[in-house]
Design a binder for these strands. Sequence first.
DNA 1: CAGTGGTCTAGACCACGAT
DNA 2: TCGTGGTCTAGACCACTGG
Lengths: 260, 260
Amino acid sequence: MTQPLYLQIKHEILHRIQTGDLQPEDRIPSEHQLSKRFHVSRVTVQRAIRELVSEGLLRRIQGSGTFVTNFTHRFSLIEVRDVLEEIRRLGGEPTTEVLLHRRFTPPEDIQKLIEVEPETDVFHVALIQSMDGEPVAYEERFAIMEIYPDFLSQDFSKRSVFDYLASHSVLEDIENVVSAVLADKRMAAMLEIDPDEPCVRVRRRNWYQGQCVTLTRITYAGSRQVLASRYRPYESSANVGSHPALLRTVQNGLAKTGEV
Amino acid sequence: MTQPLYLQIKHEILHRIQTGDLQPEDRIPSEHQLSKRFHVSRVTVQRAIRELVSEGLLRRIQGSGTFVTNFTHRFSLIEVRDVLEEIRRLGGEPTTEVLLHRRFTPPEDIQKLIEVEPETDVFHVALIQSMDGEPVAYEERFAIMEIYPDFLSQDFSKRSVFDYLASHSVLEDIENVVSAVLADKRMAAMLEIDPDEPCVRVRRRNWYQGQCVTLTRITYAGSRQVLASRYRPYESSANVGSHPALLRTVQNGLAKTGEV
DNA sequence: CAGTGGTCTAGACCACGAT
DNA sequence: TCGTGGTCTAGACCACTGG
């Protein structure tokens, strides 16, 4: 079971980076040199290098060379998934209770966030997502009317709002804002938590064809729920062989809060 | 200014996906068909397809074909960066006040999280990160002693802990947990916020060579700070031309909380 | 079996950067 | 000018999937 040549070259370079033999900003050997050293064609070397570039470890500069990036400064990523999908993934039984489902004139803060003119109606749905009968999140979604004409006739207790909205637009831009809020009495009652419990809130806005089309606000059920994720910044050489195609394998989940 | 052939093919496929001509789970034409249709070699077609695969829009199955993935179910990503770096990026003047910098025997919760045996000493540093004099986050870091021998002799008010830790290990695995907590009196005083203000907290654990090596707990200064990010799930065909190499361009920042 | 993707070659010409 | 990466060709053989 010999590995493809381009993977062998990739691992060789990765290994030299991991051992510190190649430092950030160092120039790696040229494609021509590598193809001679490994006795392979230049195309094969290029494939190895291109993959490392797309994985953020190398940077190519035409006419100048290929350099090691300072990948130690790479950030951590946290996923935010559809709550319903997440519940299913965890093997729970998801239920959705639709509290509001209407067309209305948004107050000024919402109107500004969703970037519509004052007095413009938008669609609005508010619901509670539960897992095995226990509330997980309170979700409010606003959508502009133009591209979701049949919004009001959907049954969101059966079909996920996420699903519905996603099917009507290919998103170009997504903004997420994570904050902490206190549950007021109403929120606490809905989520079955104590009033004044701190909750993680995610606000998301999506753009389609240059226009903000949806605004979502998800409030997770207090300290009972957190956003968790685990991933590999890049595949270490030991791992690449087993699943070469998977970079940044991300596992994510709602988790019960333990010690934080 | 004609585009490379592989990009033209990429855009053609992307366009067919975006217009709905190609639906999720559809099989796209074979490499052979595409190379005939566009009058290019198979290698060129492959490059277009491979890039779309790495961007998550296509899935290849050897012997069977290439299929459109259900990319609408892709999740949102939120970045968590080094606070200090973030402050600099925002053009602020970062300062670090080191509150604790020691070797100690961790309490049970910490000991379990960092996966060391009971009664094993670890390094510990606690500090306040400020931007232009205003506290942004309270940061606590724990590190195992084996791979950070000179931990105690570092001056963390000058060199970022993040920087120091990153320079000693190439991380294999990162876990992030985001939660909301209430600021107790001590925390509120340190962050100069009101007691009982809700704060976003990120706990991070890093693994290196199969072992948990660092544990970090960052508490952001109340509702004054949130985690924000904005990115493109994939480059739309209109954008690909301008910066073909950038997929998932992510911009992120600490932001003042407005309406959430 | 035929059709698909997976890998690879030995060239070629071009665009760009440094000198 | 020369060395770098950027793109491309017209084949080849292999491994896998499906009927």
